[in-house]
Design a protein around this nucleic acid. Sequence first.
RNA 1: GGAGAGGUGGCUGAGCGGCUGAAAGCGACGGUUUGCUAAACCGUUGUGGAGACAAAAUCUCUACCCCGGGUUCGAAUCCCGGCCUCUCCGCCA
Length: 424
Amino acid sequence: MLDINFIRNNPDKVKQAIALKHENAASIDQLLEVDTQRRSMIHACEQLKSKRNEKSKEVRELKKKGQDASKIIEETKKIGDDIKSIEEKQKELDSQITNLMLRIPNIPAADVPIGKDEKDNVIVRAWGQRKTFDFTPLPHWELGSILNILDPERASKISGAGFILLKGLGAKLERALFSFMLDVHTSEHGYTELFPPFLVNRTSMTGTGQLPKLEEDMYRTAADDLFLVPTAEVPVTNMHRDEILSYKDLPIYYTAYSPCFRREAGSYGKDTRGIIRVHQFNKVELVKLVKPETSYDELESLLGNAAKILQLLGLEYRVAKLSTGDMSFAAAKCYDIEVWAPGLNKFLEVSSCSNFEDFQARRTNIRFRDEDGKLRFVHTLNGSGLALPRTVIALLETYQQKDGSVIIPDVLQHYMSGIKVIAK
RNA sequence: GGAGAGGUGGCUGAGCGGCUGAAAGCGACGGUUUGCUAAACCGUUGUGGAGACAAAAUCUCUACCCCGGGUUCGAAUCCCGGCCUCUCCGCCA
């Protein structure tokens, strides 16, 4: 959420930013109007409260002297009634404001390309050489079928469309990959590994910005009002909710594996083939809590940490700086890492690295005391490091051979109990 | 799932209707002392909101003793609901 003070002082800037993210800018005028009303109400209410406190003191004094206080008590009772009625109205305005505030997106950083959608994203760098084949590379689902490591029919029998069932070395490859990623991030990039809960409460989901806007995209357990995590970002960022950290604690780097659950409502018909877009997938997440003045440098290094995985795996990728129109609700700046999938003949998004500045910190109330003893909001960042299914796709399709077998990259062989190739 | 106990400031812990934004201790910070360290002594030490101010500093008011309601002139304190923690019993991978 944004700072209400900032919105008051820069309504036009905020409206402009909102329009760039395709959100409704009219809510700003509404917000400011309600905000003005609310403030005058607070003022009136506090004056009454002050009066009441004084009168109560008088009652106390009179009673102490054994004198009659019934007249003042009568008066004060009336003040109390007035306070109650103002408070009721004020509460209504409070909830209106909270509601509006939670739906205002973050403001894009100055160097974010202005644009409508993903077509306006800017490719900022590319890594790796395009792999050439002396045969036509197959898409991963055909490789999965040939190697008997993917069982889409039974996955949908068990759970429905959009679920993955891995078998044998396919399952092992999955496990190898996230172990490998966690090891790289902990031992080479300085992240602390976490294993968080995969069910979280409503407050946590609101803190990181999934709620209220995206509730229909989330899986929810009705009996307990808990949500299946759509990414480890949610439990990990919420770890420090309502905490005050010391500047000495920062920066904090966390990495966590989690399955990710997404209903993908509204994306029916897109990427239905194979395992490109599914309701449950594994991911290793990177989360940083940092001092504001360092957050953009931290974003670059986070991006580098995620990309390192693809470099180690020898997979071609490119990095896109997202345009204002393609960025998520909470992000101020975001890079996507896209990996090349030869069988599909296209790039697939495997990571989204974002700086949220203080947007999430404000919602989650994560602050730190700086060198001067002042309380400030931290900046939060996160990125996938990486999402598994699409990494698996790229890996299978890139390292496939003519007979359908797949070579395991050197760095993974250790995690695959020394297996060098997945063959029929 | 059943029975009980409890949630107070950075921490420990008192208070159980008004003089309590909160005793005491610890910690932290500043100062005096000191060759250095330690000790001792003195002082400071919460957060949100509204208003005053062009702004910062500052000041005034207001709220906050897990959260939300209620009783009362007045609530950390009494009542109701919720959440969480602990102990015992049961069940269970």
